[in-house]
């Protein structure tokens, strides 16, 4: 644990805003690529896909914080709120690109997709899970709701990450490694919580 302790010590000097800045780098890269024509032949698809993928990666990163602390002692808990809010930002931009650049506000088709297409329904449900989480990711809400209720509410993150991974899996035309690995990671990280709860080791909750 010595390594972990010194790492935690070093991390104490890394402010939360630095993590936020880091999390905005993929967005800045996308904007730069968009402005310089570097998003490829179908820039809309690239943008949509990259924003969605980054959201999924951040959701998974948020779920890694607790196992990392339990298993290695490295404590990233104070960055978790920033990670979650960044995930929401990327998911919201992903949705916006789909509505505006991809479907180009063709509301009748959007409406049909929302009731008929499993991948769209699953994706929207995932986003819907993130909305209350983003709205309550502040100290005032934690105090207002009480720690226990707040924590219960934030278990929606498990549903969100599973829905997001399923959303990706439902889109591909043939089975390929990438969406399957993300789905496995999401299922594994959520299953861990379930195992911990069943084990009732008591103090540690995620």
């Amino acid at each position: 644990m010595d390594g972990a302790a010194s790492l935690n010590g070093a991390l104490r000097r890394v402010p939360v805003w630095a993590v936020c800045g880091l999390g905005l780098v993929p967005l800045a890269v996308l904007v730069w690529r968009g402005l310089s024509g570097g998003l490829g032949i179908d820039p809309v698809k690239t943008l949509e896909h990259q924003l969605g993928l980054t959201a999924l990666q951040l959701l998974l990163a948020g779920l890694v914080v607790t196992p990392l602390r339990r298993w290695t002692g490295v404590n990233l808990i104070r960055y978790r709120r920033a990670i979650g809010l960044l995930a929401f930002l990327y998911a919201a931009l992903h949705l916006l690109v789909w509505l505006w650049l991809d479907l180009q506000l063709r509301w009748s088709e959007i409406g049909a997709d929302l009731v008929k297409r499993p991948y769209v329904i699953v994706g929207m449900l995932g986003f819907a899970c993130l909305v209350p989480l983003a709205m309550t990711s502040n100290g005032w809400s934690v105090r207002r709701l009480g720690a226990a209720a707040w924590q219960r509410l934030h278990r929606l993150a498990y549903a969100a990450v599973l829905l997001a991974a399923l959303h990706y899996l439902l889109l591909v035309k043939v089975w390929s490694a990438e969406p399957l690995l993300y789905a496995l990671a999401a299922a594994g990280l959520v299953a861990l919580r379930w195992l911990w709860r069943r084990g009732r080791s008591g103090t540690v909750r995620a």
Binding site: L39, D42, D102, Q104, R106, A112, R117, P118
Partner: peptide, 22 residues
């Protein structure tokens, strides 16, 4: 006749950049 997972009602013309028309 839609693909079971997505609509075939419209399409995006490749080549128009970010604002390629649907």
């Amino acid at each position: 006749v839609d693909h079971p997972r997505w609509s075939q009602a419209s399409e995006r013309r490749v080549g128009g950049g970010l604002l390629a028309p649907r």
